[in-house]
Amino acid sequence: MSETASSGLQHCFQLKSASVSMTALELYYFDNDEFEDTLRDKISQAPGFFKDIPLIISLEKYEGLSSELDFFKIIGTCRRHNIHVIGVRGGNDDQRRLARGAALALLPGGGQRDRQVDPAEDTAETSEPAAAAPEAPTEPTPARIISQPVRSGQQVYAPEGDLIILAPVQAGAEVLAAGNIHVYGPLRGRALAGIHGAQSARVFCQSLEAELVSIAGHYKISEDLQDNGWKTAVQIQLRDDLLVVTPLEKA
């Protein structure tokens, strides 16, 4: 906005610090076929959400042999599924050399914890220490708020924080969020919370009539939702890898 006094020249770009929330793939060991199968399975649980996302490979929990790490295969497999591997995090010197050889960026390891480490507990604090950009204040990501009905064929996406909808989510519509999803109206379409893997994410709605509810890739379809809390105000959360529906009154 403001012309800087230091030089009258307008440069063709400016460098800014940016803090971006990204999906990390925590690799335990590498087997090419198994890798692709697992990836395909994950994508099928939330199709569309993995499309063209950036991905970093986290090597902090890697237990396989460094020689088995074939980044070219990982990149190739991911690209076939429209996922872009942009770098690695952590890893030892050998592994990082291999990654550099595959033209991947190297990110510092040792991020204290990721959001999904403690799934069961209610972690009121979602802010995590920003390892990469220490100067950025740890403000919570603002929620995306929608006040119009989300209609059939429409998709609303909150890539970083919560999604709050003050209107119905219609059948045939899809709402997605990295964090929680609140629907102050009937939820008739599909709701996918925690799409980057946040297992503590929840879905709240005033009337559960959904076609599908998913939290961190674990999902239930309409048929399996009918028995419990159907057409009433509920919250849905993940407990031991299972979606649990509980009524909202006197929670």
Binding site: V150, R151, S152, G153, Q154, Q170, G172
Partner: peptide, 13 residues
Amino acid sequence: VRDSDRILGILQS
């Protein structure tokens, strides 16, 4: 009704 919902979405976008 479902088709109308779709059209309403298109009207608003």
